[in-house]
Simulated scan of single mutants.
Amino acid sequence: MSVVFSGIKPSGELTLGNYLGAMAQFLTYQEEEAYFCIVNQHAITVPQEAAELRQQTRRLAALYLASGLDPEKVTIFIQSEVPAHAQLAWIMTTLSQMGELERMTQYKEKAGGLNESIPAGLLTYPPFMAADILLYQADVVPVGDDQQQHLELTRTLAQRFNYRFGETFKLPVAAVAKETTRVMSLQDPLKKMSKSAEDSGTILLLDSPAVITKKIKRAVTDSENKLSYDPESKPGVSNLMAIYASISGLSYAEIEQKYADIPGYGQFKLDLAELVVGLLEPIQRRYGEIMAGDELDDMLTIGAQRASRVANKNLHQAEYAMGLSRR
């Protein structure tokens, strides 16, 4: 049985892209020893309103459950409720080199326009992420393409620790989401659908059926009016087809054949909207039940306790190897 770890930041509203690219993938690991974390400490690398962060954390935990994760099979918990994450993060930070952290693509992108007001947390985010993963001796980490560089640093830091202090950490491998699950903006298909963008290019998991349908109807396509998958010359249509394929299970060729005799994109968009609504409606219904009930707090308390037992054991082994113990 493999050990799996992954987490999502509770910042912004979750999108269809988050579900297809991450949460739907989580469901395939429920027979493994899996840890799914709400990484709220990563969210504070940029300023957050306390009440909003608290609410977003609960909403994300509820969506974990509503999406189908079974707390009897997997461990769902909030990062800040397991102090070992921050403790191992400091250790990983001391093993990191400034050059390594400054070369991180996400750091350069996010810090680019901040001049001298760059939060130090943006720089030290990667070793904290490494600590999250190594703390559970994860074998597999489901990640998107934009996180692979961080996972490579995680492996580097684990190797560095093992070389200096003896074999302690496993070297995790990435489980990259399938190409069809990479959901781009409906209005700018060259950019990823962002959970911080509340516009017509983003489908939120909690959008109403009417709003979802409206956004898909207005999605950017092209003037060719022929359904075919070609990300380079037809990025808008190809993005919609990727969403359709992910939900329906049909191949691109099968989708093209299905609409070969239907001119324009109107019917295709209507059918896609129906697919998306059908996917999200039961999640939204279950989410409402969870938020109105008492099970969420009980689940998170048990999850934090379960995660802490494993995390503390591995943290103490690392501390002992480094000499951070009296005996």
Rank of each mutant, 00 (worst) to 15 (best):
I283C: 04
M104W: 09
P126N: 04
R58H: 02
A50L: 11
T45Q: 03
A34T: 01
E254P: 00
E13F: 05
L240D: 02
D297E: 15
W90I: 06
V310R: 14
R59W: 07
E52D: 15
G249E: 07
Q25E: 13
Y265I: 04
V4W: 08
L206W: 06
L205G: 03
R155D: 03
A219M: 10
V141W: 08
E254H: 01
L280M: 01
P263V: 00
V173H: 14
Q305V: 11
S6Y: 12
M104N: 13
D297S: 14
D298R: 15
S11A: 13
M92G: 02
A210I: 03
A34K: 01
F128I: 10
D139V: 11
K313I: 08
L204G: 14
V176K: 10
L324I: 14
A292C: 09
K269F: 01
A273R: 00
I290W: 02
D298A: 15
T154D: 02
Q284R: 15
M241A: 08
S251V: 11
T57W: 00
M1A: 14
L20C: 05
L88E: 08
R286K: 15
M299W: 05
I8Y: 05
N18T: 07
L153H: 07
Y287G: 05
F26P: 06
A321N: 12
A62D: 10
L153R: 06
Y287T: 05
